[in-house]
Design a protein around this nucleic acid. Structure first.
Lengths: 120, 120
DNA sequence: CGTTCATATGAATAACTGTTCATATATAAT
DNA sequence: ATTATATATGAACAGTTATTCATATGAACG
């Protein structure tokens, strides 16, 4: 039947308009939420989380991190690039060695909040 | 030294043994860091972030969320399942409708910390 | 200079993930 | 019971991503 098909095709019949409207008003810009997701995506990889965790204590060179995590220098270097581009780590050069450290204190608080949720 | 012999993964000889040793002592269990990464992975998708953000204000049904985010009911339902399995949202049934809401207060604080980093 | 060492990077591959489509389930209404 | 509605789910596909391998860069030092 034609009318029923049209109705059935409208998959949003159950919408509570007032709720959706109020939620829509309170949602941040698409772009902000996209950036937020991108930030958490960086933390959402166990290699990167382990690198960040290691750097909570002290600065380390690429080779130190590779040794600590038992991974290749190349794999660590690739991930450090991601962390660098996200402004989560910074680095300084000392001769041939490049030391990486955390870029700001947000890393610490974000990890701490996550830990609280995990340790339950 | 000892660790250097145990872990010979990094082919370079630049390892600072004391730094690696001290970092190794302070690293949490592999499993904990894996779980932590898994948690952040959930936040690392803009659809899920937007769902969580919408639920900060009030509970919503699947169809409401689909309308709000302009996505299909199926896509939202799939993501709600992920959020459910991660214990980030809970739900209650009211007739044919199922209302979703945040499972605990950690979601709020994790998002807030992330926002502080993004808004710079 | 050329060599060595620490790090970076491009390409390829394998594994993973989000959405769509079709369909199933379950509750409510007639 | 039959139909309608709200949500859930399995399979497939497309897009993404982490690691490996090979090689490049770039600084230090004889």
């Amino acid at each position: 039947m034609k009318i029923q098909e049209e109705i059935a095709r409208c998959e949003n019949m159950c919408v509570h308009t007032d709720i959706v409207d109020s939620a829509a008003r309170n949602m941040p810009d698409e772009e902000v939420l996209y950036d937020l997701a991108e930030l958490f995506k960086i933390f959402g990889d166990s290699t990167r989380i382990r690198i960040l965790y290691a750097l909570l204590e002290q600065e380390m060179c690429v080779c130190d991190i590779a040794q600590l995590l038992n991974m290749t220098q190349s794999a660590i270097s690739h991930q450090l690039r991601v962390l660098k581009q996200s402004h989560l780590v910074k680095f300084r050069r000392d001769g041939k060695t490049i030391y990486y450290s955390l870029a700001d204190s947000h890393v610490h608080s974000i990890i701490s909040q996550g830990m609280e949720h995990v340790e339950e």
